[in-house]
Design a binder for these strands. Sequence first.
DNA 1: CCTCCCTTCATAAAGATTAGATAAAATGGC
DNA 2: GCCATTTTATCTAATCTTTATGAAGGGAGG
Lengths: 224, 224
Amino acid sequence: MKLLVIEDEPSLLESIIQYFHQEKFVCETAGSLHEGIRKIEDFQYDCIILDINLPGGSGLQLLKYLRQNKKGDGVIIISARDSLDDRIAGLDLGADDYLTKPFHLSELNARVKALIRRKYAEGSSTMELGILKADLPSRTIKAAGQQISLSKIEYDLLLFLMTNKNRVVSRRAIAEHIYDGPSEQVPSFDFIYSHIKNLKRKLKEKGCNEIIQTVYGLGYKLSL
Amino acid sequence: MKLLVIEDEPSLLESIIQYFHQEKFVCETAGSLHEGIRKIEDFQYDCIILDINLPGGSGLQLLKYLRQNKKGDGVIIISARDSLDDRIAGLDLGADDYLTKPFHLSELNARVKALIRRKYAEGSSTMELGILKADLPSRTIKAAGQQISLSKIEYDLLLFLMTNKNRVVSRRAIAEHIYDGPSEQVPSFDFIYSHIKNLKRKLKEKGCNEIIQTVYGLGYKLSL
DNA sequence: CCTCCCTTCATAAAGATTAGATAAAATGGC
DNA sequence: GCCATTTTATCTAATCTTTATGAAGGGAGG
């Protein structure tokens, strides 16, 4: 089990780490917002313990980042302010639990364990859609149990279609999603053709024909 | 349980051996510093009973060797001098316990038992993953029973991949883990290429091909 | 001094992405 | 049904990015 603790107060950080080391967790730390974001870019943690007050910005921004990038890491917020506002903001942004300082480490431990139990009980770090099963942490997708070898764009594309199953998505929407922003940077949407083609081919190889359908004049639709 | 007794006084050596034989230990002996070092190069002992005054140099040198080579053998120092200086020097150099001559063998026995209990209570000191087996205390890894000769970084790298099996780890994550801190200190991530290459080669030599996979654009993954 | 290990660098190779040309398919009007 | 137009597919090759490789320099430790 892998933990990321984002906390700027060294003594608290140290005691948390020490405690969870004893609990056989692999622990990583971050002392600032940006360090935290760098780490979650690289890794999928089983649980993130996040302080709200951080040098460089609010921990809520990190939550926002996680949600925007559809990362499935579990998050427990710790904060000295136990105002209702923060709690609501945090939970709205997808935090899984909330703890106000000061707290006993055993209490934190119980929450982490509970979170991990929940997380893997319902398999929220994967996305299953009929015959397709995406594993977000490892950015892999299986079709009927078989691993599909996908490039970066192909993976993004397929996952985007999956999150929009049974809905038609335009090439522009696809391009903007893949490029993670408005369309200024995208010179032409034609390249989508190629990626769709390759994706269709790879799915066909695994016996998944016809699950990506072309809707003339509008875009593509993944239907199951 | 395997014991190494390093002591130059034959009568004391003999009685210690005899005692621990009765206690069902496997005992080896060394009468000098260099003999002792030769033996710990070849073996991992559960406990080393080390006299400080030795022909060929101080037992403290052996402790130094152990620590420099990250050997995990437990060490109990015995010495006629019970000066505070020696005790401190010994414990500073990583000895686990200290006993001044003369002592009762039952007392030594109790300390050895306690040390071994501590040592193995700390949790699994090995990590097994399919064909790979890492021994954390001695920082060695075997593939299919064959020892792989690894440099420090190679060991860290492989162990890191093992703790993240079936997950993709980025080069940045690897670098930060190896350097044990944020990336400021790491001049460039390129050196990972070299280490991955060497690691792959060494694994291949032992017949473990393809267990480290590169994931284009994301990093590396150890899969079993 | 020698050896081993780490790191960097330059260059090669592999892989992924995009542009462009052309073919095929769909649509709508006749 | 047939044609013109629009939209999508397919293919090739150019471009760009990422990774592999080998050689060389630097440093620590024996």
